[in-house]
Simulated scan of single mutants.
Amino acid sequence: MQDWDDLKIALAIARHGTLTAAGRALGLNQSTMGRRLAAMEAATGQPLFERQGTSLIATELGSRVVAAAEHVAGTVAELQVELAGGPTPLEGILRLSAPELLIAPFLASRLAPFISSHPGLAVELVADERPPVLARRDSDIALRFSLPDQAELFVRRVAFIAFAVYASPRYVLSVGLDPEERRAPTAGTFSGCDAVGPPPELSGAADAQWFASVARGARPALRVDGIAAQLAAVKAGLGVGLLPCFIGDDEGLTRLTAPGACPLREVWLAVHRDLRHAPRLRAMIDQLSATMKRERPALMGAPRG
């Protein structure tokens, strides 16, 4: 790296994903960006980015360069705030990956005010439950239900999610279920009912195993992967199913068990250790933490109203 301009080139490519978009952000054309990147890679003797589809993804060395650039950019931004007496607008792409369960029913709507207040920041929500590989810029911030253990990650728990067994009011009436009798279920409590749940090979989570136990003896009405499909099946009256309380309570369903009866699911936030102080990442981390804290009653299944 020759100077700060080189770092800005690497940072723009990492943030925008293509030479064209990065060049547009810096006021340079694609050919100039290509020449500058080639010169940097020639100087280091190693590639800084590799192509995946239509995007450029940082290599291991490129990720270290980008982390250094983020640090410098953050320091410059803080200095600008101090000198100008006001915040510097957040810009670029910020990719947040999370399980499908959190994307549409929770994050998309609750992040809307944050996204609207930062028009220069393009937020991408990606459904993903795999262990995060943030060093390769698959995402900038990851939310996961299991504790990530990669050494390069800064990780903290930001929430718990309560689950309960739900059914449609029509199904409750049709089979004569009494919710009060099943608030603290044991193995086989829902035997004789119809059950909606994931296929056995996808039932590894503690809450799914708990549901398999209390629904022992139930007829498997539908085995389906994905919370959206399970919710649709329960709403259609196919049987009882395990749902997050913050979803089930908003859908006009009858809650059949107490939230504390089922094991809670943890939500972990992970970010690359070297990037967590970058202004745009720090702003999103603060927003996510505040959102999880504010929504804690709903996430924990507290009674509404």
Rank of each mutant, 00 (worst) to 15 (best):
L61V: 12
T291L: 03
E78N: 13
T18A: 05
V126F: 13
A221V: 09
G34P: 03
P89C: 10
A122G: 13
A122C: 15
E100G: 13
M300F: 12
T291Y: 05
A215M: 05
T88D: 06
R64G: 04
A151M: 15
A212Q: 12
A208L: 12
A69K: 00
S213D: 09
S139N: 08
G34A: 04
D274F: 14
T18K: 02
S213Y: 02
S289H: 07
L61Y: 01
R137T: 08
M33R: 01
L19H: 01
K8S: 11
A108K: 14
R51K: 12
H277L: 15
V172K: 03
C193M: 00
S139T: 13
A69P: 04
V126G: 07
R144G: 03
L288C: 08
T18I: 09
A233K: 03
S213W: 05
P99Q: 13
S146H: 15
A221K: 00
L37M: 05
G301I: 08
A122D: 11
A151E: 12
S174L: 13
A108P: 06
L90I: 10
A218H: 02
A112P: 07
A38Y: 03
G305T: 11
P198N: 09
G92M: 06
R216N: 11
L28E: 06
A195L: 02
K293L: 10
L101E: 02
E295G: 02
P89M: 08
G27W: 09
L177R: 03
G62L: 03
A151H: 13
L281Y: 05
G17I: 04
E50Y: 14
L107M: 11
L11T: 01
A22N: 00
L11G: 00
I141K: 03
D194M: 11
A67F: 11
L147D: 10
A233H: 00
L222E: 01
L134Y: 01
T189L: 08
L7I: 07
A167L: 10
A206T: 09
A14W: 03
R51M: 10
E152L: 14
F114L: 07
F246M: 01
R304E: 15
G120N: 06
Y171Q: 06
R282K: 12
G192F: 05
D140S: 11
T186P: 01
R136G: 04
T54S: 15
F246K: 04
S213G: 08
F246E: 04
A164K: 00
L48Q: 00
A98Y: 01
P87Y: 10
A162I: 10
G53A: 06
G74I: 12
L269V: 07
D274R: 11
E181F: 15
L288M: 09
G92Q: 03
A21T: 00
D286G: 11
F163L: 10
G27H: 03
L143T: 06
F145G: 10
A122M: 14
P87T: 07
H16E: 10
S117E: 15
A218K: 02
V65P: 06
D128K: 11
G86F: 13
A187P: 04
V123G: 06
L28Y: 02
C245H: 00
G74E: 00
T189F: 07
Q46S: 14
T75Y: 13
S63L: 04
Y166C: 01
S191D: 12
Q46L: 15
V72D: 05
F160M: 15
D6G: 12
Q2V: 10
S191T: 07
V123D: 08
A42P: 00
G197R: 02
